[in-house]
Each structure stands twice: as structure tokens, then as C-alpha cells.
Computed example of a mutant assay.
Amino acid sequence: MSGKTNQGHFFEDYHVGLKLNHATPRTVHDGDAAMYQALYGSRFAMQSSWDFASPQSSLRNPVMDDLLVFHTVFGKTVPDVSLNAVANLGYAECRFLSSVESGDTIQAYSEVIGVKENSNGKTGIVWVRTKGFANVDRPVLEYVRWVMVKKRDAASPTPETVVPDLAKVVAPDALSVPAGLDWTRYDYTAAGEPHRLRDYTVGEVIDHVDGVTLTDAEHMMATRLWQNTAKVHFDVTAREGGKRLIYGGHIMSMARALSFNGLANAQLIAAINGGAHANPAFAGDTVRAWSEVLDTTPTNAPGVGAIRLRLVATKGGPAGALRGEDGKYLPDVLLDLDYWALMPV
């Protein structure tokens, strides 16, 4: 049998300091933006209308949705990081560093920053810091994620445990604001809602009302769009139960699109402080979403502030319900995402 095919890395292949240069660079363009909107129905004005975005920034071309960029970078990492993953466990220290425009070419690099074998001896957790660049050398995204990965051989030696110390929140002064962004003449009518930063209070919970029932065809199309090759999203024999696992990023984008109803002016994602895919999702599940306001802060850009939000995707649970008395996520919770978004003040 030829040894030319890629079987992916297993837990014992990783060590702290290992650097991974990911294939394949990908040029994003207007077609990607249109496909993203077709899949999720996102209506945020900065990504929907060049007439809205260009007068308020120094962008030269239509801007790609922030999560489209995240998924594209994430997809580059899958063959090297999570092809043999059991689960994608979480995110931290994610910053969107500059806008990606139509015509930019995205590539990604990662470094292993932590490893820890699980007590069952069959799997381990790997932490990687990933950086995405546009056009070779312009940083656009940086984040840490950790995954549970299968061991090739349960008898292989246990590596020294290294668990990285990660910030719980991206500091407000570390948020990047797109060059030239000026919302002093922001068009609230075109954006879809009148609510600005000062209208939101810490602790406020917003029920985004709508729901979307997941289908296999849409989530597989989306996952292919990011060139994410994880077996569990396509192959019904790749996991117990005979169901394709919905890519967690699909839930992120679906929930973000649903959050437009109540947060239409949370235009751009500046950072992801943390995130957990609390429970698996499958075709036939109906996704709903709610948000909690965690913090607000000004920025140095004219008319631009930042709002910290907890975005929760559920299979129908009531807004505001997240964990049970035991402290564990309720079984209907799919996503718990803590992020900063830019919003007019």
C-alpha cells in the first residue's frame, strides 16, 4: 500500500515548540462572500454593502465577514491539527488584526504550545497557537485552540504535561480597529436598528427570537468551503451513532447571523475571548440564540466603541439558561462564545 496519503497527526506526534506550516493558501473573493450569505443569511451592513462600508473606512475592496476569515484559517489547520481529533474543545486569545478584503490570499501557521495526555491513555489534549496572514506577511488573525486527539498507540510514552496559561479576556487596549474606521456619521437606517453602544447595559439578555433547522447538505457545503477535511463532518462511519457531526464553526456563524435581530450594530468581531462547543449538533436540530451583555468600552477610533457579548446557541432552551445546578452546560446548549464586537457609540 502506498504511503503517500496523509493519515493526519496523532497525539504522540506533537510536542511543545512544534511548528506547522499549513497548506493550502486560499484566495477569497466576492463569490465566497455571496456563498457565506447564502448559507447563513448574515445581514450585518459592513459585510453586506460596499456603499455602507467604504465611506466609513480605508477599505479598498468589499470586506469579508470576520467568521468567514476565521473558518478559512481554521480549515487550513485541520489536516495538521485535528484530522484525528475526537473533539475541538475551546478557543482563547483570538484577535482579528486587520480586515480581509476580496482578492486577499490567506495562509496559516501554527505552533504547539501545550500537550497533556488523558487518563484513559488513548487520547490527549493539544494546544496550538495559530496565525493567519493575508498576502504572505500581513497578520489578519491570531488565536489559541485546544483539541482532544487520538493516540496512534496507547502504549506510546506519555509526554511531559505542559498546559499554557491563557488570558480569560482580550484586554480592551489590545483590540484592533480597522484603519480609518469612522462611525461619527453612521447610517442607522441602513444598518437596520437604532441601538448604539450607550443603549446596552451590562447584564442585559437579548433573545434573538428566530431559529434555523440544520441540514446535512448545508453544513457539508459550508465545511467544504473552508476546506475543512475533518472526517466526522462528512463520513457517517467516522463516529459512533452513524451521524455526521456539525462543524462547530457552522453553529458559530449561524448564531452570529441570528444575533442580528437585537444586535444589528455589533458590526465587526474584534476578538474572541473564549468559546466552548458545549454539546454536539446534528442535522435536524433547530438552532436558536441569545446574547448577554458582559461589558462595554470606548476605542480610540471616532464614533467607535466595543461591546463584550456572550453569544449562546441552543436547541431551544430559554434565553438566559446556560448551566444546571451541577455547573455543567445544559444538554440543549450548543455554543458558549465570549467575544468583543465593534459598535457605534
Rank of each mutant, 00 (worst) to 15 (best):
D235P: 14
G241E: 13
A255I: 13
G248N: 13
V232L: 14
T229A: 08
V236I: 07
I251E: 14
Y247H: 15
A264E: 06
G262A: 00
M254F: 03
A266L: 03
F234Y: 15
R244C: 13
M252C: 12
T229Q: 08
A238L: 01
A222K: 05
W226C: 06
R224T: 05
G241D: 02
F260T: 00
L263Y: 02
G242F: 01
A266D: 13
W226T: 00
K231Y: 01
R239C: 07
R239G: 07
V236S: 10
V232Q: 11
M221E: 12
L225C: 11
M221F: 10
G248P: 13
L258T: 01
A264M: 08
M221R: 11
G249S: 10
W226S: 14
L258F: 07
L225T: 12
T229I: 09
A238V: 04
G242L: 06
L225S: 12
A264F: 08
L258N: 10
R256A: 14
V232F: 08
G262M: 03
H233D: 01
N261W: 02
K231H: 07
G241W: 09
A222D: 13
R224D: 04
E240Y: 11
A238Y: 06
H233S: 04
A255G: 15
K243R: 15
R239N: 12
S253G: 11
H250V: 05
Y247N: 15
L263T: 00
G262N: 08
R256V: 00
L263R: 00
I251D: 14
H233K: 01
R224M: 09
G242N: 11
G262D: 05
W226V: 01
I246N: 14
R256D: 15
I246M: 10
K243G: 02
R224S: 09
F234V: 00
G241H: 07
K243F: 02
A266W: 04
A255L: 14
K231G: 12
A266F: 03
M254V: 02
F260A: 08
S259N: 01
G249H: 09
G262W: 03
D235A: 03
R244S: 12
N261E: 12
I251Y: 11
T237P: 03
D235G: 04
G241S: 06
A257D: 00
M254K: 05
N265R: 04
H250Y: 15
S259R: 05
H233F: 13
D235L: 06
R256C: 09
Q227S: 10
S253K: 00
T237R: 08
